[in-house]
Design a protein around this nucleic acid. Structure first.
Lengths: 222, 222
DNA sequence: GTTGCAACATACTCCGTAGTATGCGAATCC
DNA sequence: GGATTCGCATACTACGGAGTATGTTGCAAC
């Protein structure tokens, strides 16, 4: 029952400055490897030893920082969501019509997906795992929290969509919820097919994000 | 080394008539339960005993028809893809402009997703598992075969898209591959969020399929 | 310079689960 | 009507992998 609880603590603040540097670095390294493993082999398909091997370390190192495999997965998920939230939130902050804002948000979403493909693939997986009934109560709390964030994320888009309908930049006759789910689906699906081509420049990624976004906003009608 | 190979054989013909009825029925029952389990708990999260319990039977019944858990998963995947292919293929067969055809295909895709949500959720999962490196050579062949079908499926849309560009019903300036990936993503994502509301009529489902399709074709611009 | 703790590594335990070997009643064949 | 095969159930094995208990090393503080 040793209360060595550095375990969870750091995750909560997650941003309380440099935090002694080396410590954070070690944790981030674990998260990175875990994200890759989970992405390639799935949650259940990944063993802690797999992650450790990839780290060039052993289980000990991982269990020193994370209570359980599920916790580790959640932390990767959380980090992925945080990056999405940050990018989209910033895009929403700048002004413009609803449609302009929505375009920027979607573009930011797509770009974040591409630049953090491992983390975001885990996020997608986590959403899919949503109805994974059999977990400990403690873990279910974490999962519910993540789903709550997810919901807030979707709400950002819904709000902007409605704002666009109000200012006339977005068509009135659309089912908002369905439209947003469709748009987000198109971008989220990138987690499945997108893999960075070697030597792909940020500018190329940005261009691709713009193109996929533009199609979602403007449709394909000729 | 008993060569009791009813195992795989039936799957290959898969369509050689009623096939003595009761046999097929038993297999289909297994596939249905497996689809539900895989959907709810994921591939690795589902044990053969889980599927058996849901069947009100034991492992024996399952291993009598399927060589391994992976085989069972693939068979569910295959069936899901078959249903998609059938629906979309039929939609493509009827004439019209490229855009009209593409609209019908996408609608059929969406509707099939809704009406076979368990199977199609497994399909989505299977696509995600694509790069599951560590399988037996035999299973990798199955997986590659499924990915090939998947690719052909996407090709159906790409062809129609190009046809639409040729006949002027679809804008010329779009990146075809990216556009199709986006559209399919929007619909595939339904596997994540869509669950049939109790008492939902086929007509309501059809309406939803139409709406989400129309948004993908026409965009949201006001 | 020794006490203490952080940051791991090593060496286990223990249980769930895939796969197998075998049993067994009922239908089918000859 | 005996033999054989089908369609499962039962009983077992074997192993991988999550989690734990316990070292071990280095740095920091005093």
């Amino acid at each position: 029952m040793a209360k060595n609880d550095m375990h969870r603590e750091w995750a909560l603040k997650t941003r309380g400055q440099e935090e002694s540097g080396a410590l954070v670095e070690s944790v981030v390294e674990i998260l990175d490897c875990a994200a890759l493993c989970f992405t390639e082999m799935g949650f259940q398909g990944t063993s802690i030893d797999d992650v450790a091997r990839r780290l060039g370390a052993t289980k000990g190192r991982i269990y020193h920082y994370f209570r359980s495999k599920t916790d580790l997965f959640f932390e990767v998920h959380r980090e992925g969501m945080r990056r999405l939230m940050d990018a989209v939130g910033e895009a929403k902050a700048a002004g413009g019509t609803g449609r302009e804002t929505l375009t920027r948000m979607l573009e930011a979403h797509a770009l974040t997906m591409m630049q953090n493909i491992a983390y975001e693939a885990v996020v997608v997986q986590g959403v899919h795992m949503h109805r994974l009934g059999a977990t400990t109560p403690e873990q279910r709390i974490s999962l519910d929290e993540l789903m709550d964030i997810r919901h807030k994320f979707e709400l950002l888009f819904v709000e902007t969509f409605r704002q666009g309908q109000a200012d006339g930049s977005i068509r009135q006759d659309a089912d908002v919820s369905l439209a947003v789910k469709g748009m987000l689906g198109a971008v989220n699906w990138m987690a499945i097919w997108y893999r960075p081509r070697s030597g792909e420049s940020p500018e190329q990624q940005r261009a691709m994000a713009r193109r996929i976004t533009e199609l979602q906003i403007g449709g394909i009608a000729g």
